[in-house]
Design a protein around this nucleic acid. Structure first.
Lengths: 238, 238
DNA sequence: TCAAAAGTGTTGCATCTACACCCATGT
DNA sequence: ACATGGGTGTAGATGCAACACTTTTGA
């Protein structure tokens, strides 16, 4: 016997990464799924699925994320539980997560998909400034995820979730600039992140353009984000 | 036909207020409900109930809050959706809210209950430092609610949710001190809240002790808290 | 007149911002 | 050699913590 009969529980995820554009700049991008059935057939929606009896919401988010992109996120956190009565023709409560993917992971996976010819047909990546109209209340949900990302980038290390293991300060600054949508002073940016103490300088340098830039790693002793007393069971970082 | 069969959706709320202790200081307090049936019979738990098909989660939170305390909250916001498989013997996803009640509202309601003799038998208010062991994962949930309150008091006006319409700066500072658990410099506190521009001075003064203190009101043009792009449908303030 | 809280002034320290400047490399 | 991004130095503005000080009331 169920106590809240007639209410289904779904899990969806706003999956964000940085895409390198043709002109060399970086923009936020996310994958959407083309719906094949009603309601909202033939419209784009966030990846997700029903919560099953045997898995926790965060596991369901990771599972549907893997099914959509073939990848494991570098950051995954609950965003909000949406449950307005009229948000879907049937009564659905959606527990929504937001995730960050590493740029290089996405590139590798895209290349593998192209090579094998087995890329999922109904999944497409969209730049954030070219989003189509979304099914359900998913447009509002994406806005909220971006707001959370922008709020959190100021006081935590979430921006690192977009970058590979080793990166230059210019890479990191570019991620911040793409998230915040404004330019940052390279000199001041350097001092800020250095004094935060989360970065470990390596002996490697990236060459190729002009003066070589030192490569840094994360100090993995420090968590990617402060998630309060909930701990890593509820907010996964890699 | 349900898609996520066997999963029930519950709504619970961490309801916080400031209690005036015998020695004149202020402490955080919250109401708990003594469970009458299994699981966790005879243990204290957060107020709540099942989400019904016809109401949104925030409405359900406001409803169960009214049933428990007879009151309307001055602040109500979603905290987190808890859904670990093993958090209850049956599969339950709990959408948890946190709410603030005005001190004077609680006092008035308590007096009314005492006068009428109809106070709910199985509801009791506990000071935060004297909480009993809680049912389910509700102890962890209370910890998280406190963490959110303490994080949010720094950059928003949530502390005002504890106070009546007119209050002195000492009242407001006392609320901050109870939330943060430390003393604040009265001079610097005054300058901070004055420069924030959220307070409207009145012509009234509170007399009785020593030098009379000016009474202030909230500037209701400014929302109690910045809740991002979700808007007041999802986060209610009064 | 004295204790205590209300309210104001001031100083010093830390941080942020803007921008000038030097460094090292590919072309 | 020079353009370009990497990296350092520094002066001014801003914000905050600490604390001395004045004001106003009740007792």
């Amino acid at each position: 016997m169920t106590q809240s009969s007639g209410i289904d529980v779904a899990v969806s995820t706003v999956i964000l990464t940085l895409r390198r554009t043709a002109d060399g700049s970086a923009v936020l991008a996310l994958p959407l799924v083309l719906r094949t059935r009603e309601p909202f057939a033939d419209q784009w929606a966030l990846p997700g699925g029903w919560l099953t009896a045997a898995e926790s919401p965060v596991d369901a988010a990771a599972r549907t994320l893997a099914e959509t992109t073939g990848l494991t996120p570098s950051y995954l956190e609950q965003l909000y539980a949406f449950g307005a009565v009229d948000r879907s023709p049937t009564r659905v409560v959606s527990i929504v997560y937001w995730a960050l993917l590493r740029q290089d992971d996405v590139d590798a996976q895209s290349a593998a998909h192209r090579a094998s010819g087995r890329a999922p047909e109904n999944v497409r990546w969209f730049d954030l400034d070219e989003l189509p109209p979304l099914a359900f209340d998913h447009g509002k949900i994406v806005d909220y995820a971006l707001w959370r990302l922008r709020s959190k980038v100021g006081y935590s290390r979430v921006a690192h979730g977009f970058l590979p293991a080793e990166f230059t300060l210019a890479d990191l600054r570019e991620a911040y600039e793409a998230i915040l949508g404004k330019h940052l002073d390279p000199a001041n940016f350097r001092r800020q992140v250095e004094s935060a103490g989360n970065l470990l300088p390596t002996d490697q340098f990236r060459t190729g353009s002009h003066r070589p830039a030192r490569l840094y790693r994360y100090n993995t002793d420090v968590e990617l984000a402060d998630h309060g007393p909930l701990g890593p069971e509820e907010t996964s970082t890699r």
